[in-house]
Structure formats: C-alpha cells, structure tokens
Amino acid sequence: MIKIAMIEDDLELADVLTQYLKQFNMEVTNYEEPFLALSSLRINKYDLIILDLTLPGMDGLDVCKAIVKDFNIPIIISSARSDITDKVIALQLGADDYLPKPYDPRELEIRIKTILRRFNHSNVQEETNNKTFILDSDKREITKNGTYIKLTAGEFEVLSLFIKREGFIISREDIFENSDILNQDYESTGSLAVLINRIRHKIEDNSKEPQYLHTIRGMGYKFTQ
C-alpha cells in the first residue's frame, strides 16, 4: 500500500482524488491545515506528498521548504496558481513535480508512479553504495569495499546467498536447496564447514573472530554488514 499525504483545502477535490487513487493501492490522508500536516509527518510515514500552494495560514511554498528541510519525501505540487515564478521556485526548493490545476486524475496517478519508481531506485542505489560487500550477479562478481574477491564457483554461490539474505539465519539445508553446484558430498563429509571457513578467510579481517559471517549454533549461519 502506497501511503500519500495530501495537503489540500479544497475538500471536494481531495475526496475525488482520494477515491480515484484508492483503486491503485494508494491510501491518501488529506490535511486541510498545513501546520497539522507538518506535525503528522513527524509521526506517520508517507511515501509521497501532494501539496497545494494556496493554503490557510501558511503559503504552500513555505510548506514545501519546510518539508524538504526536514524530510526525505517526494513532493508533487498540485496548484491552480498559473504564475511561472511559483513553478520555478517550487522546483528550486526541491519539489519533484508541478501539476497545474485542473488536471485529469489519471495524469496524477502516472506521475506518482513515475516519481516513486525513480525515488525508490535512487534510495536503493544509495543504500547499495554504502554496503561493504556488493554483489554483481550478471558479472558473477563480489567486491569488498570496491576490491574484487577471488572466489571458486561454490564459494561465490554460497556468499551470494548470504548477501541476498543479509540479516537472516540460513540453515545448511537452505544452502543446498539454493545451490546449483554444491552436492550432498558437502553435507555428508562436513565439507560445507570447510567451504564456509575458506569464505571467511577471504572476507574477514580475522577469520577466527568473524565480523560478517557468523555461525548460529544449531541453526546455521547469518551474514551481516
């Protein structure tokens, strides 16, 4: 469910847009008062904001400035103000889009989806860039702080699985079920433990005191970074 905060004092329009967007799995909460909206943003989590510029008690451009200053939420300006200066200022302040009224709700729906797709991709990319280990499945490469780690096929498969399921405990059975290379010889001879140990030697500063790849006794392994 996409959660949207709308700051709009035209309650009839707000109701029309709320009902329309609902069919696209978008839940809209409208705030007629901008100060109430700003207070709510500190308590509730929203994926996007639809902001009118002509509001009671506070100009929409000031609301936009306050949101950009304190929150990382995409903003679509929805306004009947036709002055190009308002549009330029809004975009300069950090709004992501400007939709002049009147408009077809279908256009708003498309713009919401486009902005969220771009915004979410940007956030995922930023989060990935901050990781110590980066998995490139297409190139079948794993890097640590930008440095390529030389791995055997089996080591790559297992470490890839750990990176994809970071923070979750993975049992021995899970490793075999998700591997196209490992076979039952690993399980029967204890060679899986040897393979895990080889991986630790390649990724840990001290393999005897692992920082990333942990053994969870009686359950399996957990990878964190």
Rank of each mutant, 00 (worst) to 15 (best):
M219F: 06
E127T: 10
N197E: 11
V16G: 05
G94E: 08
E8C: 07
S171T: 08
K101D: 13
T18W: 03
I149F: 04
D9L: 06
F162C: 03
T143N: 07
E32W: 00
V194E: 13
P210D: 04
T143P: 01
N120E: 15
I67N: 02
N44V: 10
K87W: 05
M219R: 12
L21D: 04
E32D: 10
F156R: 02
L108G: 01
C64E: 03
G220E: 07
Q184H: 10
I75T: 08
L53G: 07
G57N: 08
L151A: 02
T29H: 12
F162M: 15
M6H: 08
E173M: 04
P100N: 12
L116D: 11
N206H: 10
H121V: 07
E173Y: 08
D62H: 09
I4A: 15
R81S: 13
K222I: 15
K69H: 07
L93F: 11
R117M: 10
S188T: 13
L182G: 00
P210K: 02
I196E: 00
N129M: 11
L151P: 00
I50R: 00
H121G: 06
G60S: 03
G218K: 03
L99Q: 09
D97G: 10
P102K: 05
I50N: 02
K139S: 09
N130Y: 09
K164M: 14
T114N: 09
P34R: 00
I203F: 09
T128P: 01
T152D: 13
L159Q: 04
F168K: 11
D9V: 05
F168D: 07
I43D: 14
L195S: 04
L93W: 11
S79I: 02
Y186G: 00
L159G: 01
V68M: 06
G94C: 05
T54K: 12
D97H: 13
P210Q: 04
K3W: 05
C64G: 05
V63P: 02
S137A: 15
R106V: 14
T29Y: 07
Q184K: 13
E127V: 07
K45S: 15
G220S: 08
T215M: 07
Y98C: 13
S39E: 15
Q211D: 06
T132N: 13
T152C: 09
I89M: 11
D138Q: 15
I67A: 06
N123T: 05
K87Q: 14
Y221F: 15
S191C: 11
L38P: 03
E27V: 10
K202I: 06
G220K: 06
M26W: 01
I175V: 11
Q184F: 04
I50S: 09
A37I: 07
F156E: 06
R106A: 15
P34H: 07
N30W: 03
E12D: 12
L17W: 00
D59A: 07
D174E: 15
I75V: 15
A193P: 00
N72E: 13
E109I: 03
K222V: 15
L51S: 09
D180L: 04
I199N: 01
E177H: 05
R117L: 08
R118D: 08
T128S: 12
D174H: 01
I175P: 00
D96R: 03
I76L: 09
D104T: 04
S82Y: 02
I43G: 03
V63A: 05
Y103S: 13
I4W: 03
A66P: 01
V124Q: 06
E157Y: 02
L38R: 02
F156L: 07
T189F: 09
F162R: 02
L182P: 00
D59G: 14
